[in-house]
Design a protein around this nucleic acid. Structure first.
Length: 390
DNA sequence: AAGTCGGGGGC
DNA sequence: GCCCCAGACTT
């Protein structure tokens, strides 16, 4: 058995060595017309015209990179315009009220980004004299900037020759060079960074990084890539071996866990109550109605029974006006089932008056809300329950 | 290394 | 339904 394991290890090393040789061979092929030349030729006619490319303001580029983390360009554009208009400088963002920042970010998701962006602005004001550092290494010390974003800013804004390896780059390189190392492993990250670092031209790294990203977004797409008119088709390992659907390789996937949220829209004299979410959970810093989360779905009777013991309802007469169907809200790693209960009370207890914000129901839209709640309010005529006098 | 964090578009 | 998007941070 021992020998067998040793053999497998030797074989594994051999495979890695062969792969390295293969990559060298590809470089040989690319030698006459190298990788970046082919890419730039494509980019010359296919480049996207994007707002953050028409600026040399490093702060604007910084904002755009954070907005675009795990976010499609089409989704981010309007947020970019609103953000830099509302917070036109690092100083203004550093001085801003976090609630205003969250409100601008509402609906974009990954809300930690907004908090970190403001924290980063404060950091730059306090530690860097209000000027964004220029180097790849130093940029990674700023809150919310990891390897990719730091490389993007360093190359786009300051011309540093460092590869910005995002999901597009993993996909392109894994396919063209036939690399099967999982892109979400630490060895994979090193391997792809190293390869990109060999490909990047030192004279115009920013254009190279942007071209690669556009190539991934427009040509070498996740599904149905346009291989028939791809300038790399003659060299592409995945295309030639019919392995496009197999690359890139990702290792981690997990079925989403279900969570059950019960939201209480409490009516009292035309007003209702909301509270900011606390702690390390989803929707950090966003506002929501009083709620209870249960480990399993509650039946109608179970729900009414549970309401008897809710601390924010105790001491008051409760009149249930409406109970919604469970609404499914999908996150990447969670499935949330939300039920909205509209009810009227006669006497708010101290928990509601002390811990919650009392607002007119129409004032809810002033606050930053999870998409789930925002969408429900938009879809359901909730206000009618609040307008009638009782 | 694995888990956590959103919302939306494309097929 | 499923995948993935110009990823970062925590445990």
């Amino acid at each position: 058995m021992q020998i067998r394991i040793a053999n497998i290890q030797v074989l594994s090393r051999l495979i890695k060595l062969l792969r390295l040789i293969l990559i060298r061979f590809f470089f040989f092929l690319f030698d006459s017309m190298d990788f970046s030349s082919i890419l730039f030729m494509w980019y010359a006619t296919k480049a996207r015209d994007l707002p953050w490319r028409n600026t040399i303001n490093p702060y604007h580029i910084w904002v755009s990179e954070v907005i675009l983390q795990q976010t499609r360009v089409v989704q981010g554009i309007s947020y970019y315009y609103r953000f830099i208009e509302r917070f036109p400088s690092i100083q203004s963002l550093a001085d801003a009220d976090i609630d205003d920042v969250m409100k601008v970010w509402q609906g974009l998701g990954y809300y930690t980004r907004a908090r970190n962006l403001k924290a980063g602005a404060i950091q730059v004001m306090e530690q860097y004299n209000g000027i964004l550092p220029k180097s790849y290494k130093e940029l990674q010390r700023i809150k919310g900037l990891g390897a990719y974003s730091a490389a993007a800013i360093a190359s786009f804004a300051f011309g540093e020759a460092v590869p910005a390896v995002d999901g597009n780059v993993y996909r392109i390189l894994s396919r063209i060079f036939g690399i099967f190392t999982p892109i979400d492993s630490s060895t994979g990250k090193k391997e792809f960074f190293s390869l990109a670092n060999e490909l990047i031209p030192k004279n115009e790294p920013g254009r190279f990084n942007q071209a690669l990203i556009d190539f991934g977004a427009l040509q070498c797409t996740p599904k149905s890539p346009r291989c028939t008119d791809c300038p790399f088709a003659d060299y592409c390992y995945a295309y030639k071996n019919n392995l496009i659907v197999a690359l890139p390789v990702k290792s981690k996937k997990k079925p989403p866990v279900e969570r059950f949220f019960y939201y209480f829209m409490i009516k009292h004299k035309g007003h209702t109550f909301i509270k900011r979410r606390q702690g390390k959970d989803i929707w950090h810093l966003l506002y929501e109605f009083p709620m209870v989360e249960t480990g399993a779905r509650l039946g109608h009777d179970q729900l009414l029974e549970r309401m008897d013991s809710l601390n924010f309802l105790s001491g008051s007469k409760v009149n249930v006006l409406s109970i919604s169907q469970p609404i499914r809200h999908l996150l990447s790693h969670r499935t949330i089932w939300a039920t909205f209960i509209i009810l009227e009370i006669d006497n708010p207890n101290y928990i509601l008056t002390e811990e919650y914000v009392r607002i007119p129901i129409v004032g809810v839209s002033e606050y930053s809300l999870p998409r789930l709640i925002d969408a429900y309010m938009a879809a359901e005529p909730v206000i009618k329950y609040f307008s009638s006098k009782k």
